[in-house]
Nucleic acid binder design. Structure first.
Lengths: 224, 224
DNA sequence: AAGCTCTACTTTGGATCCAAACACAATATC
DNA sequence: GATATTGTGTTTGGATCCAAAGTAGAGCTT
C-alpha cells in the first residue's frame, strides 16, 4: 500500500470506529471518496481490505455496508484472541524459551512492576502500560514458531474492541484501573512463570483468562 | 465483488495454490492481468484481498510476492483451526444445543455412518464425505453465537492447506483413507455426544484433536 | 578499476471515462 | 385494478491515461 492508500484504509477505519458511518448503514464509494478528498480508486481498494478485516460487509448484490457488532460479537472476539494467544503461549512453553526471549519478557515484566510500584496510577501511566503490555504480548506471539498465529490475531484485532491494548479507557476511575492493571501484571508474571517451567497447559489457560481482563474484571473490581 | 472480480480472486488463488506462481516469486500486476485476460484494475483489487488472506505479501516498497509457507506454518494453521473450532464447540456445549441443530448434526453423522457402512471406500465417496464433513463443521461454527469465530476460521482456511475439507487426497491408498475417515467419523460422534451432554471442555478438546486428523494420523495409520 | 551519480525504463498508484448492472418508478396491457 | 415490462437514474466494475516512485544500467569521475 502506498502512503495514501494506507492512510485511506486507516482513516476509514477510524471513521467507522468513531461511528461517523453508522453500523448497518450503506456506504457508497463516491460519498467516501468525497469525504476523504480522493478519487474512487483508492476507496475501492480500501473497501476490499476492510471487507477482509470484517469491518465492512457486502450489502446484497451491490456495494458495502458498515458491519454491526453485538455484545455477543465483542465477547466472542475477546475469546478468540484468548484462545489464539493461549495457543501461542502453549507452543512457546512446549518448545522452551530462548534466553533472549526470557530476557525480553523479564524487561517488560520489570517495567510493569516499576510502573505499579508507587501504589497508584497517573493519567500518563496509561500509555506506558499500554505500550509494555503490547510488547509483552507481541513478544510471545512472535516467538510461537510461525507467523500464522500472529496473523490470525492481527486480523482479529482489527475489530476495534478486540485488541489487547484496548484495556484501559476510564481515566476517571484511576483507582479501579490501578487494581485492574495490578491483576494484569500478576497474570503476566504467572504466564512468564509457566513459560519458563515449560507448563504448556497452564500457560495456555492463564493467557486465555488474561484476555477477559478488559471485559469481565471491570464488574468484579467495581463491586469489590 | 462482481462475478468477474470474484473469479479473479479465486482464479488467482487457484494458480498460487497450484504453484503456477512460485512462493517467494515477485508477482506483477500487468503479468497477472495478461495471464487472466483482464485489465489491471480487478487484479489490483484482488491483490488487496489476497494480501489480507495471507497468500500475498508486500515485497519491500514495491508490489507483492507470493508468500512462502514452511512446514511449521502448515502445522500452525491446522492448530489455529483446531483451537477456533474447539472454542466454537465449547461455547455451543455451554449454551446447549437447539433441537434443530441437534437434528441437523444427527443427519450428517448418520450420512457419514451410512457412507462408511459398506466397509471400504470408493473414489466417488471422497466427495460425499468432504461435503458432509464440511456441513458438520459449518453447522457447529455457525451456531456458536457469533459470526466472529466463523470469520476467523474462514480467514485461516484461505491458507490452502488449513481448510477442514482438505483431508483426503490420496485416492491411491483408499484403504488407508477409509480408516482415516472411520476415525474422523468416530470423532464427529464423540463431539456430538459431548455437545449433547453439555460437556464443554471435552467437546473443545475433541475438536482440537480432530483438526490433526489430516496431518498426523496419516503416519499413524500408515504404520499400523 | 571502483564507486557514485544521473538518466532512462519499468512498475505501481490515482484519476477519469465508459459500460453494465441494478433499483425504482411509471406506463401500458390484460 | 393489478401485474408485468420498459425506461430512466444511480452506482458499481473495468479499462485506460497520467503521474510519481523505483530500479537498473551506463557513463563519468576519482
Amino acid at each position: 500500500m502506498s502512503n495514501n492508500d494506507k492512510s485511506v484504509v486507516s482513516r476509514l477505519r477510524k471513521l467507522i470506529g468513531e461511528g461517523f458511518y453508522q453500523p448497518g448503514e450503506r456506504i457508497g464509494e463516491v460519498a467516501v471518496a468525497e469525504q476523504l478528498g480522493v478519487s474512487r480508486t483508492p476507496v475501492r481498494l480500501a473497501f476490499r481490505t476492510l471487507e477482509q478485516e470484517g469491518l465492512l460487509q457486502r450489502a446484497g448484490k451491490r456495494g458495502f455496508m458498515v458491519r454491526e457488532f453485538t455484545e455477543a460479537d465483542v465477547l466472542c472476539a475477546v475469546e478468540v484472541r484468548g484462545v489464539l494467544e493461549g495457543l501461542a503461549a502453549r507452543r512457546l512453553a512446549e518448545q522452551g524459551l530462548t534466553p533472549t526471549l526470557a530476557e525480553e519478557l523479564t524487561v517488560w515484566i520489570q517495567r510493569g512492576r516499576d510502573l505499579l510500584a508507587k501504589g497508584y496510577l497517573e493519567e500518563r501511566d496509561v500509555d506506558v502500560w499500554s505500550e509494555l503490555n503490547r510488547r509483552f504480548h507481541e513478544a510471545i506471539v512472535a516467538s510461537a514458531g510461525s507467523p500464522v498465529i500472529g496473523d490470525a490475531i492481527a486480523r482479529n484485532n482489527h475489530l476495534p474492541f478486540a485488541a489487547a491494548d484496548s484495556i484501559v479507557i476510564d481515566s476517571e476511575a484511576l483507582d479501579r484501573e490501578y487494581r485492574k492493571l495490578q491483576l494484569a501484571q500478576t497474570q503476566h508474571e504467572l504466564v512468564f512463570q509457566a513459560l519458563r517451567h515449560g507448563e504448556g497447559a497452564r500457560a495456555e489457560m492463564l493467557m486465555r483468562e488474561h484476555a477477559f481482563i478488559g471485559l469481565r474484571y471491570g464488574e468484579l473490581l467495581g463491586l469489590g
